[in-house]
Structure formats: C-alpha cells, structure tokens
Design a protein around this nucleic acid. Sequence first.
DNA 1: TAGATTGTTAATCGATTAACAATC
DNA 2: TAGATTGTTAATCGATTAACAATC
Lengths: 230, 230
Amino acid sequence: MHDFDQTYLDSASLENGGSAATGREGVSPAVIKRLPRYYRYLRELIRQDKLRISSRELSQMMNVTASQIRQDFNCFGGFGQQGYGYNVKYLYVKISEILGVNRHFRAIIVGAGNLGRALGRNPMFAKRGVVPTAMFDVNPDLIGQTVGDLPVLSIDELEAYLAEHHTDIAVLTLPKEVAAEAALRLARAGVKGLWNFTGRELMLDEFDVCIENVHLGDSLMTLCYELNLM
Amino acid sequence: MHDFDQTYLDSASLENGGSAATGREGVSPAVIKRLPRYYRYLRELIRQDKLRISSRELSQMMNVTASQIRQDFNCFGGFGQQGYGYNVKYLYVKISEILGVNRHFRAIIVGAGNLGRALGRNPMFAKRGVVPTAMFDVNPDLIGQTVGDLPVLSIDELEAYLAEHHTDIAVLTLPKEVAAEAALRLARAGVKGLWNFTGRELMLDEFDVCIENVHLGDSLMTLCYELNLM
DNA sequence: TAGATTGTTAATCGATTAACAATC
DNA sequence: TAGATTGTTAATCGATTAACAATC
C-alpha cells in the first residue's frame, strides 16, 4: 500500500500539502474536530523519534478508544497496515495534508487591540503553516506601528490591501459592535475564512465563507459551571 | 409557578447566584456547552427590553430547533409557562445561577506574556462575574509592572499569595513546557479551576480540579480544514 | 373558553464502541 | 506460518427532533 522505508517528511510531500486525499466531503464534524488533536500528538511522537504506533497505544496516550481512532482515520481511506499499526511520519503527513498545513494560507488580523496584538506575535500561526501578513485598525495611534513583523495599517486601506495581497483568512479581533460590518467588507473582498474572536455570531449566508468562532467567554463560563457544581 | 410581575433582576437574586437549582448533576456536556450561548442571547434580549419569548422565536434567532431549547431548559426543571413562553429576565437569572455568574469567582493569570496580558485587560471577566486579582511571571522585567489594574508578581510568590488570597481559577498562559509543573503547584495550593491556554493537555487525576482547555491552534486548523476543502 | 406554547414522551438520527474477518 | 493489528460491519449508546397531551 505504501512504502514504510520512504522518508515521509521529505520536502516534496510537505510542500505539496495538497487537497488530494480520498473523498473528503461529508466527513462528520465530530471527526474533523478531533483531527488537530491527532496532529498534535503525532508531532510529539515524531519529536520522540517514534516510528510506528498502534491504535491501541495511541488510544492510551490520548484517552480515547482504539476503535474511534481507527474509525476516524478510515474516514480518509485508512493510513495503517494490518499487523503493523501506523507509521508515525506517514500518518502525520497525511493528517497535515487533510488539514491544509503547508498550504501556507495567508492571514490578516483585523483589530490591533490587546488580543489582536497578542495573536500577531503568537508562534501558533507559523507552527500551523499560516502566514500573517498585516494588521488593521482604526486607531491612528496604532497605525504605522509594527507588531512582531506585522505592520499595522489603517482599516481604510483594507480593500486596497486585499486587492494587492491574496489573503485567505481574516482574524477578527475588533469590537463586536463593528464585527458584522467588517465581516461583510472582508467577504466582499474575497476573503474565504474568518477566525472570529468577537464573541458575536456572524451571518454571512450570501457568501461562500468559512467561519470559525472562538467564544472565550463561553469557555470561561463552562468552567464556572463546573466550579459552581463542586 | 413563578410571578412574572416580580423584578427578577433585583440584587437579592443576582447576589445569591447560588448552586440551588434542581438536580444539576448529570446534565449532559452537550447541554452545558450550549448554556453560555443562551446566556449571551438572553442578555441581548434584555438589552432590547424584550419581556417574553417563545422557544419558537428564540429558535429562529439562534438557528436551533425549538425542541432542543425546551429540552435543554427542562434539564434544569423548566423555566417557562404553557401558552406564554419564557419570561426573558427570569430565564436569564436562572441561567446565570446555573452558570455561577455572580458567584464572583476570583482568578489569577499565570504567565504575563502577550496572551496573558491581553486577557488581563479583557472585559470578558467582569461581564461574566469573574474577578482577576493578579498576574504571575518569571521574567524580572515584567514583575512589578501593572497590567490594567493587575499587579504582575513573581511566580516565586505564588504559594504565599494563594495562601493569603482565596483563588478559584488560574488562567494558564505560560509556555507549554512548564504548564504541567505550574498546574501541579496550583492544584496543591487549592485552586479548583484551570483555564488552560497552553495547548498542552493536563493530567491532574489525583486532584479534584476542573480543567477547561482552550486550543486556539486546533480552532485555527479546523478553519484551515474547511478552506482546504473549498 | 379557545389559542398558544410548554413539558415530556416517543421516534429518529448520528456517533461511539465492540467484535471480528481480512491481511500484513 | 502464527501473531498482531487493521479495516469494517454490527450493536450500543446518546443526542436531537417530532409529536402531542397538559395547562396556562
């Protein structure tokens, strides 16, 4: 099926990244949500120079069932070998491809407040193959500054910038009151992914845009619920 | 069942907050995860001076089924009235109680890097009734500074501080390499809730501690998956 | 009272787990 | 070959939706 002696982390397979994997449409959200977690554990296994792993061993590390792991990987065609288990590097490359790491998606950060600036300096993007290129804000005091390597530009320049620089993702870290308007401008300018930290849900039905909402407040309240129960 | 003429937002009901609601153990995680979202929408309805709402109307606002809304609320005993619907303020107070808003949980932020400092200045805590009291770091350049109103203290003072100041929640915004050790110290010192931004899963089986993990990287990758599919 | 809408039970759907035949 | 472990089907479990009787 595949040659385990091959070096799966060669630059060719990493650079291509491609959306080539077997019939990926219609994989359930529950499975998709788990993929980044597999990615993290596999990265760690590679760091430890582990070459192969069985669904059983991985299940013990990750605190899930071996059955679930095999089912999950099989949504994408199955990456293992009977009697052997999974080749760690091969599996890592495959999951990287599915997740689009190494596609080098380009991102801007809209809103250069505390959270926006913190994200702008965060190594997370680099680790996940996402490339932030600029930040935008309305505040004249911030415009012209640099955060990490990122220039802070005026929000007035947004459309002009997007016309010049292909941008896949916009990170929304602006006040919720102006989130809807910003989202509309971004969608009109052709940005295809919104990573939304505003805490306000966005409706963009007219557009073919992916939205990932991060509700930090909801997460905090879930913790409070648990504490309240003790 | 309850008197709709009463002012449900009076200080008594808000201050008590209490864990008094009907049999709350064993409510499914799926329901719990939705409560903060109800809380947000109800807050908005109150802001709009809306007095009553039916499950049908709320379902259209929130893009879920009316059935689910009724089922969810009924996990806690049912807050509505046949033929009438739900009193917005009463429902809001009830959900606030369930979530422990107004219990004024006290929090510290461990790690005064970019993300820690951004969270320290974030109004989210105040809005959710959580009170941050201090930040901790190893970096001598940061120790002694103030972030918002929060003093940045030396991590060496952690145990002494916790012995003096009752603390419910620790926000972990330090490097993942030192997360496990910090978590252990916090648990030993009696902190009951960890809000974990380190991206590394924590194992604290020996202790009676609630952990809420925020995996920003996973969220970003979920978005990349969707983009990769387009 | 009649109309509306909940609370709640029953039916459906989806996701997880168990089991095992296929196969490396 | 025998042993191990996957891929995959079938069984179970839980969560969502539909339906409707209870009741305000």
